[in-house]
Write a protein that binds this DNA or RNA. Structure first.
Lengths: 134, 134
DNA sequence: TTTTAATACGAGTATTTAAGTCGGGTTTAA
DNA sequence: TTAAACCCGACTTAAATACTCGTATTAAAA
């Protein structure tokens, strides 16, 4: 219950790795090997993050990825939603075509919980995960 | 991302419904019809909650379910875990046979987030959801 | 200038988990 | 004795996640 997806895990592992490499480029291959992550899958995730402007890619041999300035300040809510889509505990928070709506008897309390979770992720920055000590 | 399962939703909807019916029994059929929930599925969930001692079943015609004293005070962490299994954002919080472990670079920060979520659910009681106004 | 090692990207497959169904059994009020 | 409820395990279906593959593009280095 309430597990993160692998993609998100891989993304965070990669970002932390890239960040800790300072200015040198990191290839998908290198990162995948370091953490035993399927290379193709990681590659796609990295490509997605390039599109989202979180990292910068350099092509060609000796190429790789590096962090883009500003990533550290990005809120986890934004990061998660751009990578994985909407973040809501129940569908009615997302698409609202539930047959219930007027009838549902737990909507309010669930929304409250949902807000709590969102608030929590809103207060965490990507940098908190990629830079935190230990 | 981070969605509740239908089973859990159905369980909470049913509990709230049963609770609001006071002392009279509620059948699975009646509840399923009220909220357009698949009856068989709801029935199984109710049966599970009987086993967990959250509700009491009365068999035979005119039978049904009623709330057991004490349910309201049960913490949501316990409730969720008894119904759905362990509540952790990453597998290493659950079974610990991750090939990484020593190698993983985001373990600490993720654990922190995990604790936050657990703490939040720890502070919510089933009764907060089944009894909260509107 | 050719090779090689990297990213880019869409389509496709496989696996896992969640969701729902079915059939037969037990209980008990009417 | 019947009917309406709960009980329960096995099964099927559907959806989401995880992963793979093939091909194209880029650019450093031999």
């Amino acid at each position: 219950m309430l597990k993160l997806t692998r993609k998100l895990e891989y993304a965070l592992i990669a970002l932390r790795h890239i960040r800790q490499s300072g200015n040198s480029l990191c290839s998908a291959k290198e990162i995948a090997a370091s953490y035993m992550i399927p290379q193709e899958l990681l590659a796609k995730t990295l490509q997605q993050m390039v599109k989202l402007n979180y990292i910068k890619a350099v092509q060609g041999p000796r190429g790789g990825y590096k962090i883009r300035k500003g990533l550290e300040k990005v809120r986890m809510t934004q990061f998660i939603e751009e990578l994985e889509g909407p973040l809501g505990m129940v569908d009615c928070n997302i698409n609202s075509d539930c047959v219930q709506i007027g009838n549902c008897n737990i909507r309010m309390p669930i929304n409250k919980i949902n807000d709590n979770i969102r608030n929590m992720f809103n207060d965490i920055r990507v940098g908190d995960i990629t830079s935190q000590l230990t």
